[in-house]
Structures are given as structure tokens and as C-alpha cells.
Design a binder for these strands. Structure first.
Lengths: 250, 250
DNA sequence: GCTATTCTCGTACTAAGTACGGGAAGTAAC
DNA sequence: GTTACTTCCCGTACTTAGTACGAGAATAGC
């Protein structure tokens, strides 16, 4: 019942108006700021205080401008989020030219993505439900296609493989970030919460319903080398893709 | 400046209070509803109208209750979300007992996850940034460990592998859902938007900066068999994991 | 200067999360 | 049954956030 529901609007940003943006007004009062400046400020806030801290008011304050002024540059907050994503994706060093050994190149690309997402921890959560088509995203996709070219996949298959890698990286980084935040909590102020969580897990471990889980929880938490873990999982993923070359669709 | 910032509170739900919930009041007015009922209503709304449609007011209306009554059952909305996740994860048929061929079992498990996420399309977006420890989640994790046992990985490695699979499934389903929503848009009302997007992509394809991307966009969109695609990618992932058994950490 | 145009932003409306506190509705003890 | 106590229900109201509106300010071209 009632209205079409918000689900319909998800991703409903007009890419033409957003990314082409061909307006060049020669008359009238010149804008004091720019889309890029606003986007950068929003990204900075998200990096520092989390995505939830990005409000039109906080962004406006960061720029030193009235709230409603933002709307001369950006139609709405959802669009701003899309701009933020593309901006963040542009925030990485120029990718090295592919060596031709595509498995190696793909790993390099994924490591770059991981670094990027660590710099912008809100990215994994922002990416799903959203299909960004900004210049940086497109450029990065182009690069991925270049990397995957020697793999001999079809175009669509290459895109698929790329999306697989991106999904893996996003998922893994989300996992890493959640973990490190939990650790930070334990070491810092909200110690009670960490303790409560530990108590709870111990209570779970007591239960006979989860024998294997109990065993794992009982294991001494081995010090994890996050980089090595990532590299290892990534290697498996890429190996799987490599094995697929040839097997793909008969 | 100001307050600790919301980023600190992410995942800051006390699992002990949430999942153990030992209160059993024998006196006083008995509750007319239950946590489970509220959670189910919220999940229903999310399934139907998207996660954004889940508001305390809409959930209360669905139950037929005043808004503030919800707070007798649930401390805040964030907690409700966590309950929703665990509830959704519990919404799958009892997993078949492992056959012992772990690669096959793992694939079965992943297919189940995919079905689940298609039934609850908001799940992929809700999972990151949140570490759910509810009974259904734990039970499912236990099952995953059972499935992976024959693989001979260590406990922590098994958890890692499981999280890898989950991340892959979530990422892929998010991709699938985004795609199908775009298709639905094209076929239905907001046709202009789909056209704008198409125009935009054509404009991009014209540009000489993205030769490979242009080529892919020019390809006739081949009719994709979503199930087959998923199975194929999944197979590669599992193969990668299988190859890792033994290689893992010297 | 005049004017058309564009940017700026105070005001205000709406939606959503939720603190507060007064009742209403039960149960246990008498 | 009455009393006392406990727990639940939820109207009211405050706060924060997104954003429509429109008046005023600033600027380029005439």
C-alpha cells in the first residue's frame, strides 16, 4: 500500500546530468566553491568520523557555507554519496602499466583496492546498492580490463571477474575494519563492551551445540598478519580465475 | 571536535544483553508481543520495500502498536537491525548433512546463501560494518565449520575461508540485485532514467579514453544465465581454496 | 548604472529516532 | 477480592537530518 516505496529510487541518479555536467554559465554571480571541493570535504568527514557523520550540515560547516548553498552544486545527498565514491576511487596512484603476467597484475590491482578501502573505510558499505559510473570509476574499470586482457576472457567475462575481485576486496576489508575496530574498543574506553562480548563468546563456547566453534574460540588467537592473510586469500581467488580460463562456458 | 563520533558506536551492541536476554518476569502485565514478532515484521518490510522503509513507525504500524511500545522489546533501531540479520540468516532450510566431499558441500552452502540473499536483498548492504553473533548466525557458522572440516584447515583458516565465501556471495548478489533493479526500471515507469543512462554510456563509449570499455559496451548484451554464472564463479573460488589446502602457511 | 542571471542562505516544513512520564493492565500476596 | 507491586503501553515532545521556497546579494554584459 501507499507510494512506490523508496526501493525504487535506489541508484536512481541520472548519470547524464551528474557526470557530464556541461554547464558553463558566463553570466551571473560566479560560484564560490565547486563540486570537487564539496565532495572532498565530505570524503574527509567520512574518513575521519564515519559515513554517518556526513550530513549536509556538517559538510556545509566544513566548507564554511550555509547548508542550502550545497544544493547549488549537488541535487541531493544521495548524489553527493555517488560523487564521494568516485572521488575516493580516484584517490590512488596511477596504476602501473600491466606487465603482461595478468595474474600478477590482477593481484597488484587488488592490493591497490585494499589500500584504498583502508584509507576510506566507509567504501565497502557504500558500494553495494549503488552503481557508480563516474570518470574515475570508469578509468579504473578500463585499467582492470587492460590487466585482464591477456587472460583471454571475453569482455563480459572480464567485467565479471573484475567485479568478483572487487567484491572480495570489499568484503575482506569490511571484515578487517570490523575486527580492528573491535580491537580498538577493547584497548580503549568502552572496555566494558569488549568484556561483555568476550563473556558472551565464552558462554557460547560452553554450549555443547557448537563443538567446532567452541574449539576455534578456545584456540589461542594467533597473531594475524593481515597483509599475508589477504595476499593468501587473494592468491586463491586469482588461481581460481586462472583455472577457469579455458574452462569458461563451453 | 565534539563527541566521540558515531564511528565508535558502529557494531557497539552489547551481545550479552541482546542474545542471552535472560529476563523472565513472572509478575506484572505480560507483553502482548515479542522480539521475534517485531523482528519478523521488520524483515517483511525490508523485503518488500527496502531497508530504508524500515522505520520504527512503519514497524510499529505493521504490528498494530504504538511507536514507543517497540522500545520495550528492543533498545534501539540498530539493535533491531542486528536482530533482523540473525532472523534472516535463520530463514533457510536445514542444511543437508555434509557428504564429506567438502568442495561440493561448500558449494551447496554458498548456493543456499545466495538464495537467502535473494529473498532478503537488503542483506548484502546490511552485513558490512556489523558483526552479528546471534544464534542463527552462530549455528550457520558451526555448520560451515563442519563442512570445512574435511578440508583439513586450521580453525582460524576455516573461519577465514568461510568469510571469504560469504563475502563473495554477498558481493555477487548485490551485483545481481543492482542489475535486475536496473532492468526493472528500464521496463517500467522511470524509463527516462534508463534512457539517460544508456545515452550516457554511449557517450562514454564514443570517448577514445576507454577503448576496452567501449568495446565491451558495444558487444551485444548476451543473455546471462545468472545461476550458471554464479556457479561458475563459485567453482573457481572453491577450486582456489582447494588448491590452497596444503599450500597454506608453511 | 541597468538588467538578466546566477549564487547564497535564513526560514521552515517533514520525517525519523527516541527520552519521558503518566496511566493501564496484569500478577502475587494477603 | 482487595491491595500492592510490577511491567507494559504509548501520547507528547524534543532533536537531528534532508530539503523546498523565496528573498536578497553578487556579478557580467549592455
Amino acid at each position: 500500500m501507499a507510494s512506490p516505496g523508496p526501493a525504487d529510487r535506489v541508484g536512481g541518479v541520472d548519470p547524464e546530468a551528474l557526470w557530464l555536467d556541461r554547464r558553463q554559465p558566463r553570466r551571473g554571480r560566479p560560484p564560490a566553491h565547486s563540486r570537487a571541493e564539496i565532495t572532498a570535504a565530505a570524503v574527509m568527514i567520512a574518513d575521519t568520523d564515519g559515513l554517518a557523520a556526513v550530513t549536509m550540515r556538517s559538510v556545509a560547516a566544513a566548507i564554511g557555507v550555509g547548508v542550502m548553498s550545497l544544493y547549488s552544486y549537488v541535487p541531493d545527498k544521495d548524489t553527493l554519496l555517488e560523487l564521494m565514491i568516485d572521488h575516493a576511487i580516484g584517490d590512488q596512484p596511477a596504476p602501473p602499466t600491466p606487465t603482461g603476467v595478468w595474474t600478477e597484475d590482477l593481484r597488484t590491482l587488488a592490493r591497490g583496492q585494499r589500500d584504498l578501502m583502508h584509507r576510506h573505510p566507509w567504501l565497502p558499505a557504500a558500494l553495494p546498492e549503488r552503481q557508480t559510473l563516474g570518470p574515475n570509476t570508469l578509468a579504473f574499470t578500463e585499467h582492470a580490463l587492460a590487466v585482464l586482457e591477456p587472460a583471454g576472457l571475453g569482455g563480459q567475462d572480464a567485467l565479471e571477474a573484475f567485479s568478483l575481485v572487487t567484491g572480495f576486496v570489499a568484503g575482506h576489508v569490511a571484515y578487517e575494519v570490523a575486527r580492528s575496530r573491535a580491537a580498538a574498543r577493547a584497548g580503549r574506553s568502552a572496555r566494558e563492551l569488549a568484556q561483555a562480548q568476550e563473556r558472551y563468546l565464552h558462554a557460547v563456547a560452553e554450549s555443547p551445540n557448537h563443538p567446532r566453534l567452541s574449539r576455534v574460540l578456545a584456540e589461542p588467537a594467533r597473531p594475524v598478519d593481515a597483509d599475508a592473510t589477504f595476499d593468501r586469500l587473494l592468491a586463491h581467488l586469482v588461481d581460481g580465475l586462472a583455472a577457469a580460463r579455458g574452462t569458461a562456458r563451453g
